[in-house]
Design a binder for these strands. Sequence first.
RNA 1: GGGCGUAUAGCUCAGGGGGAGAGCGCUUCCUUGACACGGAAGAGGUCCGAGGUUCAAAUCCUCGUACGCCCACCA
Length: 893
Amino acid sequence: MSRAYGNAADIPKVYSPAEVESRLYREWEERGYFRADPDPARRPFTIVIPPPNVTGALHIGHALDDTLQDVIIRFKRMQGYGALWLPGTDHAGIATQNVVERELRTQGLSRHDLGREKFVERVWEWKELYGGKIIEQLRRLGASADWSRERFTMDPGLSRAVRKVFVDLYDSGLIYRGNRIINWCPRCETALSDIEVEHSDHEGVLEQFRYEFEESPQPSGKGSGSVSVATTRLETMLGDTAVAVNPQDERFAGAIGRFAVHPFSGRRIEIIADEAVDMEFGTGAVKMTPAHDPTDFEVAERHGLDKISIMDGRARINEAGAQFEGMDRYEARKAVREALQNKGLYEGSTPHNYAIGKCSRCGTIVEPWLSEQWFVSMKPLAEPAIAAVKQERTRFYPPRWTNYYLNWMEGIRDWCISRQLWWGHRIPVWYCDNGHQWAAMEDPTECPECAGTQIHQDPDVLDTWFSSQLWPFSTLGWPEKTEDLDYFYPTSVLVTGYEIIHIWVARMMMAGLRFMDEVPFEWVYIHGIVRDAQGRKMSKSLGNVIDPLELIDRFGTDALRFSLVEHATGQDIFLSTEWVSGSRNFVNKLWNAARFVLTNAGDETVEGMPDPERLDLSDRWILHRLASTVDEVTSQLESFEMASAARSVYEFIWSEFCDWYIEAAKVRLSSDDPEVAGAVRAVLVNVLEQALRLAHPFIPFVTEEIWQLLPVTREKPSIMISQWPSSDGRYADPAAEASFGRVKTVVSTIRSFRSEYGISPKARLVPSASSDDAGDRDALQRDRPLISRLAGLDDLRVVGSLGSSAGARLIAGSIEISIPLEGLVDVAAEGQRLRRQIDKTGKEVAKIEAKLGNQGFVGRAPEAVVAEQRRRLEEEKAAVAKLQAQLQLLGLD
RNA sequence: GGGCGUAUAGCUCAGGGGGAGAGCGCUUCCUUGACACGGAAGAGGUCCGAGGUUCAAAUCCUCGUACGCCCACCA
């Protein structure tokens, strides 16, 4: 890989990502580091990307989803797996067709002007021209995907998989054609599946009118000359063929079996009884429009009612609508209302809130519409997919999504897969003039039953998700038996947002089990949705869309990635740009830490670690901390605790390596003894090198850039293919952690004192320190230079006893410090501080005493917990005593 | 009508049976040779409410309240 700077002195103070990112990404790609091939010596680890729409641009949701995948795949690659991240795009039937149709419209054309063949050609052209955009944008994100395996759902291979699956399901009777009520989008002019309809609450009205019976009222029945019904879609009354009441409903007992007359069509409307009717709602009598309402359709099936469709594909009233023919559905609603009023049949309206279904692609209100469509029977496919999750062959993280998946699967309904579009996989079913119908892998020239040559293919295409559901194996070569398929399937983890568990994840489970006889993935890792800082969903119409590319331009890819992962806790993410600038600061902090290490490291290559006896307390501490961090981050990444993993890396680099170790290292770096200085350099370089590897999956660019500059011998030419750090236990050193903790406490205590009294950093300060414990005193003596340096002291005198020397007395754990006050401090202020401190510590003492006084606690709590509390009590009491003594010393008591 | 999630510092959120945490913001100080995209110190919290379990609850359980989300063919 290339090195950007000849020598360390040339490294700029501020890291600038733009140039680094494009250069490094190009090199990684050219060197083939993203590529994964079946390798029996390695265990496979596979992720298939949730394929973005080919028409799409990278939005912040992709940025999160794909960053998480990249973190995982980089981690696994470094761990030595045969790690494949397979990228690609989805043809996105309706979405793409809409985009191209919109473009045509600007030229005053519709798809019908071009004709099917020309239109589809046009979409392909469009796809070639603009479709690759999102893939380029993924590269900017640093995605280490194997581009040599990039797939598109309409590639020849994947199309073959679609056909194979269709034919198989058709031949097994699991795909069938039926005349049913489906969700129809009058704007897209196609059927939609249930999942593609979005429901939202709507403040509407319930309108009431009456049907009058054709014969005269029976003498006994009061008000039985008519039956009143209520509806939210008044225009559908044009297709009414009956009125239903509940058989238990005594109000209508005499009406059942009688007939009313339709005021416009003149049809006879029978009053029927059916359990589906809720007696409590509306008037208790329901108008039946079997061609425009799913419930009515079912009732009609049971009672053999006529199903009269009153609308065309654009939701305009057809010839069945008598004088309303040609009107739009909402025009018709108004016109029907007026006509009913004129006839004296309209009985008014009441406000009524109900859910309204809209096309998820264009927002048009969906019309339940009777039409001939293709369906997949889902129950037989769902059963194995339910079992597989119950048996934990596929597991969800976080686990709560398991129930979400199961609940949906257990209530699954048949899937309408035909779309009246032109862009997509054409349904491989043919019809001959003799009425035969069959599905075929290859385009036929004659009917297999009657050998007739007058045949035609079904005009519809398949729902986009029909091909997406095959993605985990169609992309690896299925239905061919390929080496890839053998090695990389089943995939290891699917990373996605919860909003597509039903529409995609569940279907992949079913397809994988049916056609591969194995689950498609071992894990489903579900993350939240990225929203704006106010928690609103991002949408173009709200104008609150955060463009990830803009953030990358402003703060760098690493900064964006880090912010996203740091907040990937499983909850929705309310992204604010301040976070990204914070992460940018972190990247810059690392950059500058590296600058320090490099300017001090010299030109000589660092060969491994210094001898253990050369290690100073701070060395042992940072190596111990590094080892724990390695363990922590590894286990966090392995269990999908991505945000915690990012935090651990951040904490280690900033709060430990930068804040303490580098500062501590400065003392010995200027040592006259070259061995001492050399040891510090070696530790600095080694710790930094490992920290870079730990951080690499999160912030790949800056870590690579620095890694290339380090004076170390490397086994690999790039950090991205280097080995993931492991803690071999050699540097685990709890004693060092405790000792260095003491140093930190002493330093912080002195710093607080200085800050609180506004003592200038330049003031000469030579405190005395002591402890009841001789070991403490020895350690203090040893760490004297370190403490002095970090706390900004001229020196620290370690004494056997502080005696009654004048000065401020500070308590730092088991260590007592005395700082001469002459000319430095306002004694009254110090008195106040001490009193506050005594008060605070005194409360703590009372709390612990109460706890220890509780018999249940001493009798039943674990011994270690009790001992710990006793120890704390003594410590706090001693602190109070010392503070009080100090107060006395100042003459303030 | 079902189901789920969330309530912790001014803001955004981690955490989680035994000493309340981070980032940002705020206050004070520091242009000390890695970094002002920085350093040091600090202020600021009945961890939503009420019960329960426990020696011990911010943490577990129940109920409630508020907010958010998903599913659903009540005309």
